[in-house]
Design a protein around this nucleic acid. Sequence first.
RNA 1: GGCGAGGUAGCUCAGCUGGUUAGAGCGUCGGAUUCAUAAUCCGGAGGUCGAGAGUUCAAGUCUCUCUCUCGCUACCA
Length: 707
Amino acid sequence: MKRYTVTAALPYANGPLHIGHLAGAYLSSDIYVRYLRLMGRDVAYICGSDEHGAAITIRAKKEGTTPQEIVDKYNAQIKDTFEKLGVSFDIYHRTSAPIHHETSQEFFRILLKNGEFEKKTTEQYYDASANQFLADRYIKGTCPKCSHDAAYGDQCENCGSALSPTELINPVSSITGEKPVLRETSHWYLSLDKHADWLAEWIDTGKLNGEQHHDPKEWKNHVLGQCRSWVGDLQPRAMTRDLNWGIDVPPEVEGSEGKKLYVWLDAPIGYISATKQWAADKGKDWRPYWQDKDTKLLHFIGKDNIVFHCIIFPAILKATGDYILPENVPANQFMNLEGDKISTSRNWAVWAHEYVEDCAESVENHIDVLRYVLIKNMPEQKDSEFTWGNFQELNNTDLVGKYANFINRVLVLTNKYYDGAVPEFDASISVAGSQEEGTTSTYAAELKILHEKLVELTNFIEAYEFRAALKALIEISTLGNQFLQFNAPWKQIKTDENAVKVVMNLALQIVAVLSVASQPFLPFTSKKIRELLNLNDLQNGDLQNILATLEKGEALLSAGYTINKPTHLYTRIPDEVIEAQIDKLKNSRPQSIEYAPVKDETTFDDFTKIDLRTGTITAAEKVPKAKKLLKLTVDLGFESRTVVSGIAEFYEAENVLGQQVVLVANLAPRKLRGVMSEGMILMAENEKGELVFVSPAEGFGNGFVVK
RNA sequence: GGCGAGGUAGCUCAGCUGGUUAGAGCGUCGGAUUCAUAAUCCGGAGGUCGAGAGUUCAAGUCUCUCUCUCGCUACCA
């Protein structure tokens, strides 16, 4: 392989990063890329902000500002956070950049020219005063079937009929309240179905155009599973939208006015435009990084993005021609936090930018500690869990106890016995072996073992097994600790000074290896160890160099070389720091609960049209083939009703018997999953979407009016 | 309900194409040691591998059924 193009998922520029993001796509890619560079490989590490789409417009409206200000704010914040965390992108770009707009439009032009699009014209309602097309659910009107006057453009709530907006009588825009006009709108659909066959073969066998492109066994199980479940049923997908915040469809294309590119013809192409910008900045040619078959393309993402990176984007790349396809998409699953899902709206998260500030004082070497804990718990094969208790434990045992302690004891002894100089030694003197207590070994044999351990670590990285690689790193320090323990130089120094020189020289070589091997995982620590050893900062290719040196049986630090005095790389984290973080998390309420806005004013007369009655549930059963629905029988005193209610996630059928409820008694009946529902039970819903019955006082009686 | 991924020692997880007494780290118990940030090193205990059935000389590993968790999806009047 001549070169690598490594991408990390583009963060959406409408909020800050949390630990789940880091554990998902960014630390894994950063480890991999740092490793590639240390191996002297040619690599472009690409990322940037995804800055288009409706969510950003909506957020801008909510905050009373412009989309541009939103994306400027979060782009700057995210970029800053990545830098502080040591995520070593070659470029962190943004999709609002002109070069990206041009690149995306160019893709559109080529796809159009290649006949990959199918243009479909439909009539859609257009709100002239809001100056935009209206999505179906933003249109209200009178239902042609039951004359209900508040039917939505896709469905009538009253009779349950599926509608199309053009069927509505007297349609009204829910944005402005004005009458929308019908306008023809055309969109370009990518014919994904035409690509189904080669995609299926490519996913299943790794073959592309009859040649072996990659080994599917190297892909993760859950990634392959997802892909296979999608590739069987591919439909044409619209690649344009009627939006006002995004990339214009090329203006010379007929009917392009007001059309924007769909996010999947925008965001992933951001990888390419970012590469172009990076290449231009460096005076390089971008093309080989995306078009040369000797380039290995890798997408690091979270599991929510699998389908797009494994199906849709490859289809786009191949349909455009000239482009290479990803050789692997090592997607991670999700990281939970303290037993619960990470949630932005519930503010249940450890925010990266807050950690960077908060723990700078309380946790020594805090960035690398976080990196260590997140990598150690990376959700590689299944969802994983971050807890502050585990954070403390890993810091105190692995980093302080094993890793930093080993380095510290070597440096202390070297300074004590040899005034900081790497000792000369006699290679023929045998020492205790590091592998098992009571064995004897030689300097050369131990150096060989060290080399093997290092190779093992690199193999894990090559296989995208970063947790295992990190474990291998700690095992190198354990190897060192065992070696010291078995040889006990602090005793030996009194009896056999020459043997101690062999031991200490080798121990120093282990520290030197750690200074390099740590770099992909713990870059700040690596730099500090280099300083302690009085070595230069690492250069590209250094890992490859030390592997070659060790393989030849040569030392990394030569005798007589002088190192510095030790300092503590990590320190124990006391309980108070952890308790403070847990308190912070548990006391953090959502910054703003998203209360539903109060609806438009209504009249007393309108309100009295609704007939609310007290009732009691007398029978309940689950509706088959539905997760949320219970079929209930409600006693209204004068009659009994069958009601289907979406409460099965919160109430078991047997537990609602006898439950007193308030029922909307004059609601038009509607079929739900094949069962006719004759009314609606009133429920209160909180910000988490949890439902609870709204009930009269116990024993009040059935059939009475609620007003 | 459909599809996908998971359910392995107290905790966090490894176990590739089925093959000797099921592994690691942490925690726990016991011991050694003092160069080191009460860190290190050695040893012990601890699992009917979600449940049940089947295939096989042999199953954590394959098949079927069920069950729980997570994600996507349908369903919430």
